[in-house]
Design a protein around this nucleic acid. Structure first.
Lengths: 219, 219
DNA sequence: AATAATATTTAGGCATACCTAAAAATATTT
DNA sequence: AAATATTTTTAGGTATGCCTAAATATTATT
């Protein structure tokens, strides 16, 4: 079985929105995520439903079927493996790889994916700290944690943000924090949860509002 | 400027059929190569002509414009670089890579192509011995020669066939000649142009009909 | 040069994947 | 519970890229 690029993108979007398949995903939520119109989503949902990739009841939203989930996981596997390739082998910055991986994830060849996996030495996580499903579709938990949860003494590196407003990004930039930046958590202040951190050349204090908006991976 | 996958495939097909832009390419020739119908070709040709990628006169065939040629060469560059990647880095057989490269060649990212080129150490030829255009679109001549033209004493390896009939392929297989196989030309017989060649474990005599149908690269 | 054969184009359709606008269902207010 | 607002679906339309069948142009044959 093989699917169109569009079908794959919808399955992936639904997978991400469904968050462990618990709640039903609304038409509007899909439309927003895919930057398309609700009516287009309804069209596609019907097609996916006919192909038994989603369970759909009019006006009640959708959920992926087992098969739909498998397809989605395969695409995510490909996406994340290609991201590792781009960062590790081609020296891309972590923030440059998403759009390219978005294209590469649709290349069809099971052999290619498995060979790539092997070539990259079976990475368990992508450059954003998100887990990479193995050939069987199993994945380890995410390694990403919020900086505010990191214990003093730990060394970690920055892999993403929650609030991606340009205000926040500018703040980070000004303070020499980029994605990939190594940080050492020096101490935490109980009173206001502010945190003293050390980067390569700098030691600084950041508020909880900051530390709670930064994703890191602890080494 | 960016083009659809289909447009890119047509440009590539026309490029290959035009053979140095000399002769005009017929609608039927394109249709055959692309396994589609002449009427579909006419449709697309009109679109390409509107975009100034081909020069087209009704019933008179097409030729690529400068721009069309540049686009085609970029796709060929991508195709061949990915083929090198698949063979050199992911250990694919030379004969397995075409379909995958056919997909990868449409990935859009100039930076990706250039990084890949660098990663592969700027290869000048792909696994079939065909030249890889550089960033400027220039390419070296092909390294591929017909086995019958190789001088005695030379060592070469097999990179392709002219006649790809299953009869011929089965003959090669039976005699332990695969793509990638190393050959040493021991001697040539003037009379019937037959050739004595040496493979890893074997020495054999092959007729001109065979040697003239095998592409090799001389080491 | 006229006729036959072949190549190419036109005309009209189909599926995909979008869209807008209107209708219908569901959710929220009052 | 009725009115209003929001969400979702339906209906009908568009562009792409393909198709078949028919018409037309070109090329080959006699």
């Amino acid at each position: 079985m093989s699917f169109t690029r569009s079908e794959e993108n919808y399955l992936k979007a639904i997978y991400h929105l469904a968050d462990h398949g618990v709640s039903k995903v609304s038409t509007n939520a899909i439309a927003t995520r895919m930057r398309t119109k609700a009516s287009s989503v309804t069209d596609m949902i019907k097609k996916l439903s006919d192909k038994n990739l989603v369970i759909y009841q009019k006006y009640q939203g959708v959920n992926l079927t087992e098969v739909g989930q498998e397809v989605a996981v395969k695409i995510i596997r490909k996406h994340r493996l290609w991201e590792v390739f781009l960062v590790e082998k081609l020296n891309f910055g972590w923030d440059e790889v998403h759009d390219i991986a978005e294209q590469l994830e649709h290349i069809e060849s099971e052999k290619l994916v498995d060979r790539l996996d092997e070539f990259l030495e079976f990475p368990s996580h992508d450059p954003h700290g998100d887990p990479i499903p193995d050939k069987q579709g199993e994945f380890k938990p995410s390694q990403k944690v919020v900086l505010s949860d990191v214990e003093p003494g730990s060394i970690c590196f920055c892999v993403g943000v929650i609030d991606s407003s340009s205000k926040f990004l500018r703040y980070l930039d000004k303070n020499g924090i980029n994605l990939g930046t190594q940080l050492k958590v020096v101490s935490k202040e109980d009173f206001d949860k502010s945190m003293k951190i050390k980067t390569k050349g700098n030691t600084m204090v950041i508020s909880y509002k900051i530390s709670n908006n930064l994703f890191v991976i602890v080494n």
